[in-house]
């Protein structure tokens, strides 16, 4: 059990998401950087499917009445322990009974992940413990954590020993690699030049559903499209020409033209973008992108 003394800005229970329900209108969701959560689970001896916390921009204050083994991965946040011991990232931290872990603001980036040995033992909904905020299910009662919550944790003795040697993907860089999208050929030269040639800023109205970008308008012939399937990383261009990168909890279909799609290998960086950050796009070949994704995930297979 973990007591939430003070909730952070947006603390969500997450695992690797719920796959196979796209036809029901339910996206995979799950940790914004799935590999970072796998890595945290590995550090505390959980299997990779275990649920942890995804912490955004400003973290919570957590009390461990019976102690516990935790690990933090992803963006670095201000962090302190009531014992006075250090709280480094990418390491297993043994918390004593009655110890408090306090996370402050993100020092760089946007999100970090906290795994606890035994995992966070909320019930599975449609096969996953991930919170799906847009429809209010999964995680802890379908919502972000609140001060006063008690988070159930699994039996630490039952946690499987994991053999992965996954390293967290670097989240630095200023260029997101994309595959040209299904309607890329319908944008005019000025629109394509703007999209591939100028920087975009992450707008304030960005969350797990999507990153709304601000910058040079990507002009296109006003396309009336029937609703088509989309997935996280797909970049839609609404009539105002300001691109939207669909996020992990975004819709599974949409009617705006899709100019490009961010490759899975760059999701860890996508997960660390916050309002005000700038980025640019460059294209990469499909097979190269698939190879990059394999380099992350084949190593991540649990034996």
């Amino acid at each position: 059990m973990i007591d939430v003394l003070r909730a952070g800005f947006c603390d969500l229970v997450m695992d690797q998401g719920r796959t196979g329900y796209g036809a029901l209108g339910v996206p995979v969701g799950g940790a914004a950087d799935p590999a970072a959560l796998v890595y945290a689970n590995q550090l505390v001896g959980n299997n990779k499917e275990a649920a942890g916390l995804e912490i955004t921009l400003a973290g919570p204050q957590l009390f461990f009445p019976a102690g516990g083994m935790v690990a933090l991965t992803g963006a670095r946040f201000a962090a302190s322990r009531s014992s006075g011991a250090a709280a480094p990232w990418n390491a297993a931290l043994a918390l004593a009974a009655g110890e408090t872990l306090t996370l402050g603001r993100a020092e760089a980036g946007c999100r970090c992940w906290l795994a606890v040995r035994g995992g966070i033992a909320v019930p599975r909904v449609m096969g996953s413990r991930s919170t799906f905020l847009p429809a209010g299910f999964g995680g802890l009662q379908g919502r972000r954590l609140q001060s006063g919550d008690a988070l159930p944790t699994g039996n630490a003795a039952e946690a499987a020993v994991c053999k992965v040697t996954l390293q967290p993907a670097p989240s630095s860089g200023r260029v997101l690699r994309v595959i040209a999208g299904p309607q890329a050929g319908q944008f005019d030269d000025a629109g394509l030049a703007a999209f591939f040639g100028s920087p975009y800023r992450v707008g304030p109205a960005s969350d797990r559903r999507g990153l709304r970008l601000l910058g040079a308008a990507v002009s296109h012939r006003s396309l009336e499209l029937p609703s088509q399937g989309v997935l996280p990383g797909a970049i839609q261009v609404p009539p105002d020409g300001q691109p939207i990168i669909l996020g992990w909890d975004g819709p599974i279909s949409g009617g705006y033209p899709v100019i490009a799609g961010v490759i899975a290998a760059d999701w860890p960086w996508l997960a660390q973008l916050q309002p005000g950050d700038t980025l640019q796009f460059e294209t990469i070949a499909v097979d190269a992108a698939q190879t990059l994704a394999r380099q992350t995930w084949i190593q991540g297979e649990v034996e």
Partner: peptide, 14 residues
């Protein structure tokens, strides 16, 4: 990983 039918299109997610 998944198949998502929509309006005249079908999305395969690898």
């Amino acid at each position: 990983e998944d198949l998502v039918p929509a309006d005249g299109t079908l999305l395969l997610i690898l």
